[in-house]
């Protein structure tokens, strides 16, 4: 053994500093208050299904109190809520939806087997909160199609909305290619080349740093 290898004290000291850094990292590792209950892949499945969508004509049963397992939650702000809301709805604005108390309440509702039906002015407005609640594990949450604005139009004849389908959104209202003929074509001085239709599946690009690093 070399003479300079006889005293590893300094090595110990640096090693211990290294360990301390790692321990600090472990201790300060912030635990998120909420956790995702489903994977991104499952979220994609969720987005593809209409299982969590609630049809406006079904509201009739709630309003007639023939069903009592559904809690209506208005996620718009208090001002909008005050100007008009679906009877029996309680107001939890989207910002407060995941506050500590509300999470507790949602959990209690979930345990009690109650469905939480959230709505905004329209479906898209409530879509984000709905998807988030679903992702953190509240699979008893549903979202009202059409939202309040649709309800407002049909509130006196909800049952009739069964035959109406204007609350279905997500469909093309035009034959785009026909209406906007030419817009998919680079018709004039487009200097950027048209990208490929589908991005080819490539290997994970870790980094684009200089090649031949050494």
């Amino acid at each position: 053994m070399h003479v300079h290898e006889l005293n590893p004290k300094k090595t110990m000291v640096t090693m211990i500093i290294f360990v301390i850094v790692i321990i600090i990292g472990l201790v300060t590792l912030s635990k998120p208050r909420l956790n995702y209950a489903i994977t991104p892949e499952e979220t994609v499945m969720l987005a593809g299904s209409e299982e969590g969508f609630f049809y406006p004509y079904e509201l009739e049963d709630i309003l007639n109190k023939t069903i009592d397992t559904i809690v209506l939650v208005d996620i718009r702000n208090t001002f909008q809520f005050g100007r008009g809301h679906i009877p029996g709805a309680e107001n939890i604005s989207a910002v407060e939806l995941i506050s500590k108390e509300n999470i507790k309440r949602l959990e209690a509702l979930k345990d009690a087997g109650q469905v939480v039906l959230i709505y905004g002015n329209n479906l898209v407005e409530a879509n984000g909160p709905y998807m988030l609640l679903r992702q953190i594990g509240f699979d008893n949450v549903k979202v009202l199609m059409g939202g309040y604005s649709y309800y407002n139009v049909w509130k006196d004849k909800l049952g009739d909305s069964y035959s109406d389908d204007s609350y279905f959104i997500g469909n093309a209202q035009y034959d785009y290619a026909e209406v906007a003929k030419g817009s998919s074509v680079s018709n004039n001085d487009n200097d950027t080349p048209e990208p490929k239709a589908n991005v080819a599946v490539e290997r994970k690009k870790k980094n684009k740093a200089v090649e031949g690093g050494c």
């Binding site: 290294f18 790692i22 990292g25 472990l26 300060t28 590792l29 994970k204 870790k206 980094n207 740093a209 090649e211 690093g213």
Partner: peptide
């Protein structure tokens, strides 16, 4: 060994994103 351990821990703590590290092809 030290760098390897450090990188894995740092990645775990969210201090460094291993996906953005240059991995020699």
């Amino acid at each position: 060994v030290v760098a390897m351990i450090g990188l894995q821990y740092f990645d775990y703590f969210g201090w460094i994103d291993l996906n953005q590290i240059y991995v020699l092809p």
